[in-house]
């Protein structure tokens, strides 16, 4: 990335020592990077939680027979999925203040951009999950006299939710990685913390490697957790036809 080059390590003054890897730099940076990682987790968790809530409603709206619900939902999903997250972050952090006439806190901007972005992807996940549930399920619910919303809440969504756990896990991982983009507005999550440390130590090799490993540990932990959830839910009852 451009940022890498700009902030990259300066050519070593001592040529005998081309491939030095300063492990002590890694160790001394860990507390700061750890703080950054916690912020990354925080922003990802908030964004995906908000995203799941937004996505559930938008996903259902996309399936509505009412155009005034369906059309805005579709426009939202298309717009978000059709534009880069980086541009969305810029719009919220730089462009929106022009409109509302007030500065936006980087954390608020970062969380808002990521939540809105995640919501669109989760909406598509929910929509396809709900559509994958056999129509006979909702017919059975309705034939017993349950309302549309009772049927959705008790019968369709619980089954859809089990089915989409793997995709939600993927979305969580994707969001965790994409949250590195909010470093461009100066929000100090893991990637930004790495940049700042390199700016003062020039330790590109050590720091970027460490940052990558920390991301890897986080994403692997999530995929393990998702696999566990999948197993747990599918053991009980059944993996929905």
């Amino acid at each position: 990335m451009a940022l890498n080059k700009r902030r990259g390590r300066r050519p070593p003054e001592n040529n005998n020592n081309k491939m030095s890897f300063d492990i002590s730099l890694v160790l001394s940076s860990l507390p700061l990077l750890g703080m950054g990682a916690l912020v990354t987790i925080e922003i990802t968790a908030v964004a995906v939680s908000m995203g799941v809530m937004i996505g559930l409603f938008v996903g259902i709206a996309e399936l509505s027979r009412y155009g005034w619900l369906r059309v805005p939902a579709k426009v939202y999903v298309d717009f978000i999925r059709g534009t880069p997250l980086l541009v969305q972050i810029f719009i919220i952090y730089f462009a929106l203040p022009v409109v509302i006439g007030a500065r936006i806190d980087p954390f608020v901007a970062a969380v808002t951009a990521c939540s809105i972005n995640s919501g669109a992807y989760v909406a598509e996940i929910f929509r396809s999950g709900i559509q994958s549930i056999d129509r006979g399920q909702s017919e059975a619910g309705r034939s017993l006299g349950m309302t549309w919303s009772q049927t959705m809440v008790n019968i369709v969504i619980p089954q859809a939710f089990r089915r989409i756990i793997p995709q939600l896990g993927n979305e969580f991982i994707a969001m965790l990685k994409d949250s590195s983009l909010v470093s461009v507005i100066g929000f100090e999550e893991l990637t930004r913390k790495g940049q700042l440390i390199i700016a003062s130590t020039y330790g590109s090799l050590e720091i970027w490697t460490t940052v990558a490993i920390i991301y890897l540990i986080m994403t692997l932990s999530i995929s393990r957790f998702v696999a566990y959830l999948e197993k747990k839910f599918n053991g009980k009852g059944k993996k929905v036809q």
């Binding site: 056999d134 006979g136 399920q137 017919e139 059975a140 619910g141 619980p158 089954q159 009852g237 059944k238």
Partner: peptide, 10 residues
């Protein structure tokens, strides 16, 4: 129903 349509998660 022909295909029972029991709720499989319950």
């Amino acid at each position: 129903f022909q295909h029972f349509n029991l709720f499989p998660h319950m």
